[in-house]
Amino acid sequence: MPKASRIVVMLLHPDAQFYIDTLPTLSAEEQVSFGKDAPVSEADATHVATDQDIAGVPVRVYTPLSGAGDLPCLVYFHGGGWSGGTLNMIDATVHSLVVGLPIIAISVDYRLAPAHPFPAAIDDAFAVVSAVLDGVSGLSIDTSRVAIGGDSAGGNIAAVTAQQLRERAVGSTPVLAHQVLIFPVTDVSTTSTPSYLTFGKDCYLTKDAMERYIEQYADGHDRTDPRLSPLLASDLSDLPPTTIVYGECDVLAHEVRAYGQALLEAGNSVTMTEFKGQIHAFINLGGISSDARAARRLIRAELEAALC
C-alpha cells in the first residue's frame, strides 16, 4: 500500500507540484521570486503606486490612472505568518485585484512578530481602516464603498478587523461593503484539524511552520481569543458580504471551510470557492499558476460587483 504522503502528492495540481518540486533546487534569493508575476510594467499599469503613511502606519496606495471623484477602496493585508511578508512581495497580487477597475487599493505594512507580537498587527489594521472610514486618510475615497481583504495571516487580520468594526454599523448594516478572505487563518487554538493531519508535511506550508508562526505571534496570549481566532467569536452576525478563496491541499482548508459555513449560518452572504489540488499561497504564483490567475479574476469580479 502506498504511503499517505504519496497519496497527498497525487492530489496536487500540476502547477502546485511543479512549484514544490522546483523550490529545493533554487537559492534562497531565487525562491523569493520564483513563480511570482513579473513586476507590473508602465505599459500594463492601470494604477500608480505610491508609498506613504496612514494613521502612522506605512502603506502603499494604488490610485487608478482614470476615474474622478471619491472612489471605492480595498484595504489589503499581506500574508507571511504575521512575521514576514512585504509590500513588494504582494505588489503584483494587489495590483491584479483592482487592475482595470476604478478602485483605490491600500496595501498595509503592519508591524511584524516576533518584535511586535499580537495585537500590534490588529492595532495597525484597525487604525488604517478607521482612518479610511472616517475620511481622514488624505485620499479621495467614498467611505460607503470600502472593502478589506488579505491572504493567510493577512486574511486573519482582515476577518478580525471586520468583526471589530461591527460596533460602527448602523443597525444591522455593516460599515464595510465587502471582505475578501484568501486562505485565512481562522483558528490558532489547534493544529490538529483533518487538513493539518493530511497536508501538514508535503504540501508547501507545513504544520511545524504554522506552529512556529502562531507561537511567535500569539506570544503566550489565550489562543481562543477571537482577535486571534475569529472562528471562535460568539457572534458572527452582521458581517459584510464575504468572498472566500482557498486551496484544497492547504493545512488551513478545514478552518477556512468552517469559517465560511459559520458566517453563512449566522445569516451573512458568503461566496466560497475551493481550488482543487492547490496549496497555500497559490494566489501569489501568477507567473506559473493558471488557478492563481483564475482566483484573481474571481475576486476582481466580486469587488467590482460590490464596490463599483
Rank of each mutant, 00 (worst) to 15 (best):
F18A: 12
I288Y: 04
V94E: 00
T198A: 13
G80A: 03
P102N: 08
V180L: 08
E211F: 11
P174R: 09
S234K: 12
H95N: 06
M1H: 14
V99W: 11
D238T: 09
T198D: 13
V75S: 00
G69T: 06
A105S: 06
I288K: 09
D124E: 02
A158G: 01
R212K: 12
P72K: 00
D53Y: 10
K207P: 14
A131Y: 08
A4D: 11
T273G: 07
S290Q: 12
D70F: 10
A258M: 08
A218V: 07
Y76W: 10
L285Y: 02
D21V: 07
A28Y: 14
H178L: 11
I283E: 02
K3N: 07
S130H: 12
D187V: 06
L197D: 11
L303D: 04
E167S: 13
G69E: 03
G220H: 10
I157W: 00
A292R: 03
I279H: 03
G260V: 08
F118E: 01
G149M: 01
R227I: 01
V175K: 10
V256L: 06
V61I: 10
E274Y: 05
P14I: 04
A162F: 03
S229D: 01
M210P: 01
E30N: 15
Y259D: 02
T273L: 04
V270T: 07
V251E: 02
T93A: 06
F34G: 09
T191M: 09
G79H: 01
E30H: 11
N88P: 13
F183K: 03
D70A: 15
P230L: 01
S107Q: 08
V32T: 10
C308R: 14
Q261C: 09
I283R: 05
A38R: 15
T206Y: 05
G200R: 03
V48D: 15
A292H: 04
I122L: 14
S27Y: 03
L232S: 06
G35E: 01
T25Q: 08
Q179K: 09
P119R: 07
L71I: 04
T63M: 04
S269D: 13
R166G: 06
A105E: 05
Q278G: 08
S83F: 13
H221K: 11
S96K: 13
Y217N: 07
C249M: 03
R111T: 02
R60W: 07
K3I: 06
A169Q: 14
P241A: 07
